[in-house]
């Protein structure tokens, strides 16, 4: 090899720094592309309440999420009202949620919109069970990725009786049931 073609120490360091900087820039522009996190499949979930009590966080990283396109905007909402509630209103004695995280807003007779205050929600799934049993199943539990601390051995997954927890790519971390073609509710 001639002397001119020989790579000097400084050239080598410059090239290595360029490669490192390029790689860093690519990683910044493709965040967590290969990273995986925990998510629960709402099709398997039994609403046992363990998502609220088994998470290492308090309150849990699991929250109720509302798929509005599936909601019937019902007045007598099985996810909002206690079974056998004396009145269909927002009285605390009528609400099913133990922490009043589900809010009811009048739209027009006889329709109401239901939204979740994620700061209050503890992920117990009571509303999810009521909605599944009596409604369309639009209220669903999901692990909020921005809250989850991504334990290697998820303590909820360990306790889940339905084995609904699985590892999913962070980039596609949510598994909501929707009204996509082919997944529409049937009679």
């Amino acid at each position: 090899m001639s002397k001119e073609n020989k790579l000097g120490r400084r050239d080598f360091i410059r090239a290595a720094a360029a490669v490192a900087a390029g790689g860093g820039a690519w990683m910044v522009s493709h965040p967590n592309e290969q990273a995986f996190g925990w998510q629960l499949d709402p099709r398997k979930c039994q609403q046992c309440g363990r998502c609220a009590t088994s998470c290492v966080l308090s309150p849990s990283a699991v929250k109720c999420v509302h798929a509005f396109e599936m909601c019937g905007y019902c007045d007598l909402c099985g996810g909002y009202l206690q079974p056998g509630a004396k009145a269909q209103d927002s009285g605390a004695e009528n609400e099913l949620c133990p922490v009043a995280a589900l809010k009811r807003t009048y739209v027009e007779a006889p329709f109401y919109q239901y939204t979740i205050n994620a700061d209050l929600c503890i992920g117990c799934g009571k509303c999810v069970k009521g909605c599944n049993a009596f409604g369309n199943g639009s209220l669903q539990l999901q692990v909020k990725q921005e809250l989850c601390v991504h334990c290697n051995d998820c303590s909820i997954a360990r306790d889940c009786p339905a084995q609904a927890y699985q590892r999913v790519p962070i980039a596609k971390a949510y598994m909501l049931k929707t009204l996509e073609k082919g997944s529409e509710p049937t009679k």
Binding site: S54, P83, K129, A133
Partner: peptide
């Protein structure tokens, strides 16, 4: 073993 979640965290429809 973790204790079972309390009754206020579960919706029991069996009585109905």
């Amino acid at each position: 073993k973790r204790t079972e979640p309390g009754a206020s965290y579960k919706l029991d429809l069996k009585p109905f």
